[in-house]
């Protein structure tokens, strides 16, 4: 009985630690951003000036919010067909065949590559390619970082979707086949409807990862603090402006960067909540 009690205490303490850490983070982010919100008010969220020059300091987060959302949504749109097809390939079409095991391992391998390596690849391989194709004069911008982000989040969406697709009961599929359904019909009418909430959840997770990615994006987005005008324009994201500028920041600027961190936290939380809500509605 003693060990029962001990387990309970350990589990309780671990959960409590998570709670404390999360609320401590929110507390310190909120505390640090008070100065920025006091100075600029709600304007901080919808203006895009980022002027750190002493004397005329003025900060607004719109450029970074826009950059973050646009790159992440673009990455998700690119990732969606690729990840879903790969998941179906591994989880259904070539299930338990050697080829699907190879593809599956490669997908997991992609997940293990550090983001700086993706950044390097984007910088030295993808970016010159974009210049050669004439899409943009120097190759930095939303498009380049979006593509790299898409590749980075594919493994997250793929491996969870694969597991979910594999979990669809065989009875259901066999019933459909016995009624004369083709493979495509089984996928669209049985597999996807049954697995959709799990697949959706996997894309929410992937999207969350894209929102917070820092290093690879910083190397490729151009770090121009403006609202991007086109897909090939340069921009900046919330995570990368923080990574770039916190080192030399103090006072109002530091507070503004912390406020951006808080906003990023809130955006991620909102997207997670929306995802959970949608999953509940569907299943």
């Amino acid at each position: 009985m003693k060990s029962e009690k001990l387990t309970k205490v350990i589990l309780f303490l671990s959960s409590l630690t998570i709670l404390l850490v999360a609320s401590g983070m929110i507390y310190s982010l909120a505390g640090g951003s008070v100065l920025a919100f006091k100075t600029f008010g709600i304007k901080f969220i919808y203006t895009s000036v980022w002027n750190p020059t002493e004397g005329s300091e003025n900060y607004g987060a719109l450029a970074f919010i826009a950059g973050t959302i646009i790159t992440s949504v673009f990455a998700l749109l690119v990732c969606l067909p690729l990840a879903l097809s790969t998941a179906l390939f591994i989880g259904e079409y070539y299930r338990d065949k050697p080829v699907s095991r190879i593809v599956g391992t490669m997908v997991d391998l992609l997940a293990g590559i550090p983001s700086i390596v993706y950044g390097l690849w984007g910088f030295y391989v993808l970016r010159p390619l974009i210049v050669d194709l004439g899409l943009s004069p120097q190759g930095y911008g939303i498009f380049t970082s979006g593509i790299v982000l898409a590749i980075m989040i594919i493994p997250y969406a793929t491996s969870i979707s694969t597991e979910i697709i594999k979990m669809v009961p065989n009875d259901l599929k066999e019933a459909a086949y016995s009624l004369g359904a083709t493979r495509l019909e089984v996928i669209t009418n049985v597999l996807i409807p049954n697995a959709r909430s799990g697949i959706f959840a996997s894309f929410i997770l992937a999207f969350g990862r894209a929102l917070g990615e820092t290093m690879a994006v910083t190397m490729l987005i151009g770090n121009a603090n403006v609202v991007p005008e086109s897909l090939f324009a340069t921009g900046n994201t919330m995570a990368s402006v923080i990574a770039n500028q916190f080192g030399e920041a103090d006072g109002l600027k530091l507070s503004s960067l912390i406020a951006i961190g808080l906003l990023l936290f809130i955006i991620t939380a909102l997207i997670n909540a929306a995802g959970k809500f949608i999953i509940k509605r569907f299943s």
Binding site: P52, T53, G55, S56, A224, N225, T234, N244, E248
Partner: peptide, 20 residues
């Protein structure tokens, strides 16, 4: 624009550090 450790740049792209 004025003087500062980071500026409100009118044109161009940013990179991190001298090596960047």
């Amino acid at each position: 624009i004025g003087t500062g450790k980071s500026l409100n740049w009118p044109a161009g792209i940013g990179a991190k550090g001298n090596p960047g």
